[in-house]
């Protein structure tokens, strides 16, 4: 018991790898693996953006980290725990916002009364503030709310648990345009040094200016894991009129091409996540030496 508490304190007070994935093999059927010998470390103090094509395994990776599915082989360590054991000490440190969820037919306060006591650090005042910010009608039953409103409630609840590992699967799905901006603002303010936030999404533009590290999944493995700073140091994203040999990848646009090229001259450019995503998928081999 004492060992478990010490482990948690250690993970929450130092900048360490909160999640260690070593040679993870996972698949829904033995003949069709989703991850082959995947290895990766995720630390606290970061907001990771998890990107990938449909079926690349974004949700499955999140479920593996949360202990909702079991790996065929390999090791998974989350804050010193094996998530597959689903121990309460770890579960109360994880806030998992799934893409599809169900909320019971009760009012928000009844839901909070039933679920919040499981989380020792639950912050009721912060929860109230988040509901206000999201403009959620408090007296309404959860079942009568729209999908977007429910999503906001579950996000607010998850953040108010003060969990150290926040996992979000497509959190902006169902949110309207102002809510997406609110979401980005809230997530940015929720980031603390002892927290690790992983957000999976298809809508890369929703994560603009929010994430600090990009993780891209492709072909059963991690195709790219690099911080935004590292990416913009090594690559430059430009609009060009003509394609030359220095360009690694380009997409036609109205006024020429949107291009990705090596940043030989330390130019400053803004990361175009959508362009990077397409570039990595199309020219994986060319990018590999840059992000070894």
């Amino acid at each position: 018991m004492i060992k478990i508490e010490h482990t948690l304190v250690y993970y929450l007070t130092n900048t360490v790898d909160m999640i260690k994935i070593n040679n993870l093999n996972f698949g829904y059927s033995k003949h069709k693996p989703l991850f082959k010998n995947m290895s990766m470390q995720l630390s606290n103090g970061h907001i990771y953006g998890l990107l990938g094509k449909n079926g690349a395994g974004k949700s499955s990776l999140l479920k593996n980290i949360a202990g909702l599915v079991y790996a065929q082989s390999g090791a998974l360590d989350v804050m010193g725990f094996n998530p597959a054991k689903r121990q309460p000490a770890l579960l109360e440190q994880i806030c998992f916002i799934p893409e599809e969820f169900y909320l019971p037919s009760v009012k928000i306060d009844a839901y909070v009364r039933a679920n919040a006591p499981f989380y020792k650090k639950f912050d009721h005042q912060y929860f109230g503030n988040l509901l206000k910010e999201f403009d959620i009608p408090v007296g309404q039953k959860l079942i009568n709310m729209s999908y977007g409103q429910k999503k906001k409630v579950i996000i607010a609840f998850g953040l108010a648990t003060q969990a150290n590992l926040i996992i979000m699967d497509e959190p902006t799905n169902g949110l309207d345009i102002p809510s997406k901006a609110q979401f980005r603002k809230i997530m940015a303010s929720a980031m603390t040094e002892d927290r690790c936030i992983i957000i999976s999404t298809h809508q890369v533009r929703d994560l603009d200016n929010l994430i600090d590290t990009v993780i891209m999944l492709d072909e059963n493995d991690v195709a790219l894991k690099a911080s935004v700073q590292e990416i913009t140091e090594k690559l430059t994203f430009k609009r060009v009129k003509e394609i030359d040999e220095s360009i690694i990848y380009a997409e036609p646009s109205l006024s020429g091409y949107n291009a990705v090229m090596p940043n030989y001259h330390q130019e400053e450019s803004k990361l175009d996540m959508e362009l990077l995503f397409n570039a990595i998928l199309a020219e994986k081999i060319k990018f590999k030496p840059l992000f070894n």
Partner: peptide, 16 residues
């Protein structure tokens, strides 16, 4: 048996 409900239930911080 339902994904949407199972995640919330299994992630509740109590032991199996």
């Amino acid at each position: 048996g339902q994904k949407s409900k199972a995640i919330i239930d299994l992630m509740t911080p109590s032991s199996t």
